[in-house]
């Protein structure tokens, strides 16, 4: 008899998925199942928290191309 578990299907590109996996690694509190390159199943109660964490990670990941500018000039 198959089982059905409640949750939220998350569809995203592989780069975003990699960040989500990294976020989950700390406590394993978000992901129910890693489905494929672009899909994950996440706990119902944790989706909003995950979105907030993802925003945070992406803000931190923003880089400014100062160094590249210097090397071009030099």
């Amino acid at each position: 008899m198959p089982k059905a578990s409640k949750g939220v299907l998350v569809e995203c590109d592989p780069a975003i998925k990699a960040i989500i996996l990294k976020i989950d690694q700390e406590k394993n509190e978000y992901i129910v199942e890693d489905l494929d390159d672009t899909h994950l199943m996440v706990k119902d109660s944790k989706v909003q928290a995950l979105k907030a964490k993802l925003d945070e990670e992406l803000k931190n990941a923003v880089s400014y191309p100062d160094e590249d500018d210097d090397s071009d000039r030099g």
Binding site: A4, K6, L9, V10, C12, I16, E33, V42, D44
Partner: peptide
């Protein structure tokens, strides 16, 4: 960034 859908995994 991410599309979310509530439901059930069989």
């Amino acid at each position: 960034r991410m599309k979310t859908t509530q439901g059930y995994l069989f």
